[in-house]
């Protein structure tokens, strides 16, 4: 899974990065992308392209690894053996996705260790939605179905991007997400068509998660020359609003058909424009949580930090076997 809402802030350093590029090489690079060819790690690329891709793939990887925590907590309490097996498989997939993505980002020249350090120290971000807690089993079902559904919308868009290693990782990830989506839907259907208590549990989860779900795709993109460049370079493949609309279009009817309600009385499809209308999400809360003041930010990072600290002796012991091996960036 993965949270969207990439905000590519235009900044003076970014403009600086672009100013120094060799115009001939830049033109060749852009022509390659325009022809629909992929960029591979050893190809020449603008510094800004490298920087934004590292940032984007790294955030995606962090989201996978942190995103496995709110669901992972329900493995031991999942109802029944089959659900436990499935949830374990799903959580393993999420961590596996993080590994694939760290590998793709590493081909651009940032080591995995540096990325994990930046996650733990708060320098790099992950999807905001994972800063909310899963109170009940139904919360975990909501994530499995609908947060993953949102992630798939983003990931399918990004899989058409220009950077070869990221696209290949995403193809693999999307294939696995189809299991997550079906499994999550299966879980939600079971509760929504179950006893009154089960239905209530599922409805409460929808009520809790709707606001974070709308935040998930990020605020409306400001169209600037900067985002224009990233779109031209096929780093940014769809706007946040496009992803949000696509999600609403695909999943609101599926939620409604289960007799569940969505806690937004303004939510409806405008049949003339074909666009969904909704109450503007509370972007102040979004910013507050991204900046560290959400219900679970502290816990998520503390858990990751503890894993890093308490696993250090294992890495030290094993590292004794690798003396003389020099780390180089992986190839593809």
């Amino acid at each position: 899974m993965y949270g969207g809402g990439q905000v590519f802030e235009p900044s003076s350093t970014n403009n600086e990065l672009l100013k120094d590029e060799d115009p001939k090489k830049l033109a060749e690079f852009e022509a390659r992308i325009a022809r629909g060819e992929k960029i591979e790690p050893k190809d020449w690329m603008p510094k800004l392209y490298r920087k934004q891709l590292i940032r984007m793939i790294e955030q995606h990887a962090h989201s996978e690894i942190i995103g496995s925590l709110p669901e992972g907590t329900w493995i031991t309490r999942a109802p029944g053996f089959k659900r436990k097996l499935a949830l374990m498989a799903k959580v393993q997939d999420e961590v596996g996705h993080a590994q694939l993505l760290y590998g793709a980002a590493e081909t651009l020249g940032k080591s995995r260790e540096q990325m994990i350090e930046d996650l733990i120290t708060g320098k790099s971000k992950y999807s905001n939605i994972f800063n909310y807690p899963t109170f009940t089993w139904a919360d975990s079902c909501f994530i499995s179905w609908l947060v993953d559904a949102g992630a798939i919308v983003n990931q399918l868009a990004n899989a058409r991007g220009s950077y070869g290693p990221y696209c290949r990782a995403l193809d693999r990830i999307c294939a696995e997400e189809s299991f997550h989506l079906k499994y999550g839907h299966h879980c939600v259907i079971h509760l929504a068509t179950g006893t009154p208590k089960q239905r209530q549990m599922m409805q409460e989860a929808v009520n809790r998660w709707w606001a974070p779900m709308m935040h998930f795709f990020g605020p409306s993109d400001k169209i600037s020359t900067h985002t224009e460049i990233l779109t031209k370079w096929k780093v940014k493949m769809a706007t946040n609003d496009e992803c949000r609309q696509q999600f609403l279009d695909m999943y609101v009817p599926k939620i409604w058909e289960l007799g569940l309600t969505i806690p937004d009385e303004n939510l409806k499809k405008n049949e003339e424009t074909g666009e969904w209308e909704f109450t503007e999400p509370d972007w102040e809360e979004f910013k507050r949580v991204i900046n560290g003041d959400g219900p679970c930010n502290k816990e998520r990072l503390a858990v990751r930090r503890t894993a890093e600290e308490r696993g250090a002796w294992v890495r030290r012991a094993l590292a004794a076997k690798t003396k003389g091996d020099k780390y180089v960036a992986p190839m593809a």
């Binding site: 708060g122 858990v303 590292a319 180089v328 992986p330 593809a332």
Partner: peptide, 22 residues
């Protein structure tokens, strides 16, 4: 897990990332 922790990265004598295999 301690309720409070610093914001610095855990100290290491040297980087401990393993090498990669294709």
């Amino acid at each position: 897990i301690p309720a409070e922790f610093g914001s610095s990265f855990p100290e290491k004598d040297e980087k401990d990332q393993f090498i990669t295999y294709e």
